Simulated scan of single mutants.
Amino acid sequence: MTGDSPVVHGFPHLDTVRSAITALYRRMSYEGVRSYAPSLVPADAAFSDQDDLHLGAQRVARAMVQHLHLPDARMIVAFRAMEHAGSVELAAGPEYFIELNDRFRTHRRDIGAALSHEVMHVLLHRLGLEFPGTRDNEILTDTAATYLGAGWLLLDAFREDGTSSQKLGYLTPEEFGYVLAKRAFAFDEDPSPWFTSPQAYEAFAAGRARAEQDARQPPLTAAGWAGRRRYAKVRRYAQDHPGTTAAPVPGVPYAFEAGPDGLRVSFACPTCLQRIRVAVRGRVRVRCALCRTVLDCDT
């Protein structure tokens, strides 16, 4: 896990983040994902300067193991000089060796954040879930840690002022906020009281605003007037040009296609981001087969 690169803002990895959320639901099932409620509580990751470094790190690692449902895994945490924030040896288990950057000896409140990422590597390794390429796989790890209730610590480790900055993980602060907001909507949680960093709260607010946009896209009935008007224009074009994939408005988050019973529209579920296909029949209520979210649509 990196920790020293310049802080990038915005949503440059959003497509990969969304794919990671979908992959979690597909690999773990709805019931499996829902079993990670509630989130890791702040007290379980608390680490004061008075705590013994190694005993405290082992205590937080055990809390991560318990939260992430790894009952037989044992984490052995050590510290050394290294380029990245941390690393983990993904062996057969049940013992896993985690190394953290020496700087955490004096930045102890962020040890929980670093461990949430490294222990998540172990869970994904056991699940056999990975993305091709180092960058995408690390984005998957950050997304999974956050969506399963431990990675909010990674966002809280983000601090920035006029002269310095610190961020852990591969997601931008706003992307962490986006994933955390997705979890908050799905699990009916409010993580905002847990933040100790003002910058983390601001990033969460920005990510939440982006996540709310997903729930206001046509054909969902919560879409605004402008979105509905554009949707009607694209639908009319699809009806007048059957069999074509071209659309008069580029960049729309839905697509029309011909089905056995007429025109169908596909769009992303706002919860798990899986594509849903619905017949164009006016107002309908559909249930996502992957995450069981019930959606009111006006197709």
Rank of each mutant, 00 (worst) to 15 (best):
L127C: 12
G128T: 05
E174Q: 06
R103P: 00
V179S: 09
K182L: 15
Y201T: 14
P173M: 08
R135P: 00
L168G: 05
A222G: 01
Y201H: 15
L124V: 10
A226N: 04
L220Q: 15
L171K: 12
I98L: 08
Q213N: 05
Q199S: 15
T106S: 15
K182G: 13
Q217Y: 02
H117G: 08
A209S: 13
W194F: 15
L129G: 12
F187V: 09
Y178C: 05
R108K: 14
F176Y: 15
R229K: 08
G151A: 05
E99Y: 10
K167H: 12
E189Q: 05
S164H: 14
S165P: 00
G177M: 03
E99P: 02
D161G: 09
Y147Q: 00
W225I: 02
T196I: 00
A200C: 00
A186V: 09
S192N: 04
W225D: 11
G162H: 13
T221A: 04
Q166R: 14
R159I: 10
F97M: 03
L153D: 06
A205I: 08
P191S: 04
P218A: 15
F204S: 09
G133P: 00
A114C: 10
A150Q: 04
P173D: 01
A206F: 01
P198L: 01
T141D: 05
T134W: 04
A200S: 10
V179G: 07
T134M: 01
G162W: 04
R103H: 11
R109P: 00
R208H: 14
G128I: 03
L115F: 13
L129D: 10
R103V: 11
I111M: 07
D142E: 12
K167Y: 02
F187C: 10
Y201Q: 15
L180M: 14
W194N: 13
G169W: 12
D110A: 14
E175K: 11
A200H: 08
T141F: 07
V122C: 09
A215F: 14
Y178S: 06
K167W: 08
L127S: 11
Y96G: 11
A205H: 06
Y96C: 07
R229E: 02
N137Y: 07
A200T: 06
